[in-house]
Structure formats: structure tokens, C-alpha cells
């Protein structure tokens, strides 16, 4: 018998998540086998599962995952390293903010991926193209959220800092950034989502390197189970990135 507090326990969400996943898997299998969903469009989940061994052995999935993860990692770090200071600059310098903030917001909505031929010309068919395009795609949310977070810091906290005669650098490091951190992290989460999609998308588009290219290849060979299996690996990599981000966040902000 499950005790009443079982739903509060740590294992509960994990078990619930896993059983939901398996349930969906089985349901899809049944629907496909009975022909409710077309087998030529969606492969059987069991076939996808069996394809995993093949793509691991034959398609160098580990190497490809490493390439893709590396491009993602560089892009994810770069959007933070570039985006947070840019957001701080827009916060600090009001004329710049008035001039640029709308443009930054527009950047977030622009279909930059269509500009890939331009980047191909500049950077060649290389990981650099993937990274540069992904960084540009993912930059806007971090910039906007950093500015927003800093503008939202309660003025009394800033006054505490001023009354203690803190320097600008101390103020930024010890009051403004910690106070804005929750909002900045929501920006990082959005940006990383854009970056991860973009890395795989552009690999696919320019047929280069890691998992994106593999998906492209397998799809062209009409290997549907393999394609879906490879997509599974993309999801795995994304999950790892967001788990890491959550670790970093809980380390940076103790329970408030």
C-alpha cells in the first residue's frame, strides 16, 4: 500500500514521469499496430528502440553527440557571456536602451536561419557557422531579461547600497545582479532553448557535423526509426543541458 505521503516523496515525480512516458510509448505502439495511425508516417516505437543499437554502432553517435554538445556548449556559454553585459549596458545607458531595446526584441522574432547562406560565405561550412548563427539566434532573450531584471531591482535596495557608499562595481556584483538573478535566469532558459534548437537545425540545414546531419542523412535514406532514434539523442543532450543549468541556478540562489 502506498502511504499517503508517497505523492510527496522524491521518487514520485520520477516514477510518474517514467510511467507517463512508457504509457505514451505503449499507446502509440497499439495505435500503429491497429492502423489508427499510419505506419509509413510514424514508425513503431519498438522499431525506434531497436534502431538505437544500429545508429550507435554504425553512425558514430557518440562522436556526433560530442560534436553537437560541444557546439551547444560554446553557444550557450557565449550567449551568457555576451548577453548579460549587453543587458547591463542597456540598463545603465538609457539613451542606448531607448534606441535599441525594440530592435533587440525584433531580433528575437526574426527568422535568422534564413540568412544561413550569408554565414556560409563568411565562415564556410564549419562549426563556426553553426555557433555564430546559434548565438545570434539565442542572444535576444538574455539581453532583454537582463535589462528587465536590473530595471526591476527595488530602489530601496539600491539606496541601501548608495548609503553604504558602495562603488558601481560593488553595487553591480553585490546588489544588482543577485537581485536580478531570477529574471536573468528566466532569460537564460529561453535563450538556451533557442540555442539548442538552432544548433541542431543549422547542422541539419547545412548538412554538417553532429546529430543534425545524422537526422538529415537518415531522413534522406527514409530510415524513419533511425531518424526518430537520433531525435531521441538530441532530446537527451538538451535534457542534460537543462539539468546542468538547474544545478547552477540552485547553487547561485539559495532558497528565497
Amino acid at each position: 500500500m502506498a502511504s499517503p505521503s508517497f505523492s510527496q516523496s522524491r521518487a514520485f515525480p520520477i516514477l510518474l514521469g517514467a510511467s507517463t512516458f512508457i504509457g505514451a510509448f505503449v499507446a502509440l505502439e497499439v495505435l500503429l499496430r491497429y492502423g489508427v495511425v499510419n505506419k509509413y508516417v510514424v514508425p513503431l516505437p519498438s522499431q525506434v528502440l531497436m534502431s538505437l543499437e544500429r545508429i550507435v554502432v554504425e553512425e558514430n553517435i557518440v562522436g556526433r553527440m560530442r560534436d553537437t554538445a560541444w557546439e551547444m556548449f560554446v553557444s550557450c556559454i557565449a550567449v551568457i557571456v555576451l548577453g548579460v553585459p549587453m543587458g547591463a549596458l542597456l540598463y545603465r545607458w538609457q539613451p542606448l536602451r531607448r534606441a535599441l531595446l525594440d530592435w533587440v526584441a525584433a531580433l528575437a522574432a526574426a527568422p535568422l536561419v534564413l540568412a544561413f547562406p550569408l554565414f556560409l560565405v563568411i565562415f564556410g561550412r564549419s562549426a563556426t557557422t553553426v555557433i555564430v548563427m546559434s548565438v545570434i539566434t539565442g542572444l535576444a532573450p538574455i539581453v532583454i531579461k537582463t535589462t528587465e531584471g536590473l530595471l526591476g531591482v527595488r530602489s530601496v535596495l539600491i539606496n541601501v547600497g548608495r548609503s553604504l557608499k558602495m562603488t558601481d562595481a560593488q553595487m553591480l556584483r553585490m546588489i544588482l545582479l543577485p537581485a536580478a538573478l531570477p529574471v536573468i535566469f528566466s532569460g537564460i532558459r529561453l535563450s538556451w532553448t533557442f540555442v539548442l534548437i538552432s544548433v541542431v537545425g543549422i547542422e541539419f540545414l547545412i548538412n554538417l557535423g553532429g546529430l543534425g546531419q545524422l537526422i538529415n542523412d537518415l531522413a534522406e535514406r527514409y530510415d524513419l526509426p533511425g531518424t526518430y532514434g537520433a531525435i531521441g539523442f538530441v532530446i537527451l543532450v538538451s535534457v542534460i543541458f537543462f539539468m546542468l543549468l538547474e544545478r547552477v541556478e540552485s547553487w547561485l540562489r539559495p532558497a528565497r
Binding site: R154, V156, N159, V160, I175, A179, L181, R253, P254, R256
Partner: peptide, 10 residues
């Protein structure tokens, strides 16, 4: 000492 709540929540 300020009138508004001014502790650092972090």
C-alpha cells in the same frame, strides 16, 4: 534604516 523592507532576499 529605510521605511520599506530592505533586507537582501538572497
Amino acid at each position: 534604516v529605510f521605511q520599506e523592507e530592505s533586507t537582501f532576499p538572497w
